[in-house]
C-alpha cells in the first residue's frame, strides 16, 4: 500500500497536497484499490465555493458510485479534465495523473487538522 509521507489525508481516503495556498485533492491508493476499475468521474464546477465535508464529486467504478467530499473550505480553482477521457488514471497513478480537483485554501487551520501519513496508515488499521 503506497502512502506518500509528504501528503495529508482524510478518513474518507482522500489525499491532499498543499502548495502556495492551493490544495490538490485525489483518492488514495487504498481507495482506488477498493473501488477497482474507475470508469467515470463527475467533478465540481470551477469557481464553486465548497465546504469541508460537502459531497462535491463522484467516482464511479463498474459496480458502484462513491461520493468524494471536500476536505477543506474554499474555492475550486481547477479540475482534472483528463479524467473524462481516461478515468483509469485514478487506478494507475492515484497520486499523480489521477488527481481530482484543486481548492484554494480558505482556512489554514483546516490543513493542520488533516491526517498525516502515519495517522492515515493507522486509520487503515
Amino acid at each position: 500500500m503506497n502512502i506518500p509521507s509528504d501528503l495529508r489525508y482524510t478518513e474518507e481516503h482522500e489525499w491532499i497536497r498543499v502548495a502556495d495556498g492551493i490544495a490538490t485533492v485525489g483518492i488514495t491508493d487504498h481507495a482506488q484499490e477498493e473501488l477497482s476499475d474507475v470508469v467515470f468521474v463527475e467533478l465540481p464546477e470551477i469557481g464553486r465555493e465548497v465546504e469541508e465535508g460537502e459531497a462535491i464529486a463522484v467516482v464511479e467504478s463498474v459496480k458502484a458510485a462513491s461520493d468524494i467530499y471536500a476536505p477543506l473550505n474554499g474555492e475550486i480553482t481547477e479540475v482534472n479534465n483528463g479524467l473524462e477521457e481516461e478515468p483509469s488514471l485514478i487506478n494507475e497513478e492515484p497520486y499523480e495523473g489521477g488527481w481530482l480537483f484543486k481548492v484554494k485554501v480558505a482556512d489554514n487551520e483546516q490543513v493542520e487538522g488533516l491526517l498525516d501519513a502515519d495517522a492515515y496508515e493507522e486509520h487503515l488499521g
Partner: peptide, 12 residues
C-alpha cells in the same frame, strides 16, 4: 434496451 448517446455517468 437503452443505450446512452454519448458518455455519461454509468446507468444503474
Amino acid at each position: 434496451a437503452i443505450l446512452y448517446d454519448g458518455k455519461g455517468s454509468p446507468p444503474r
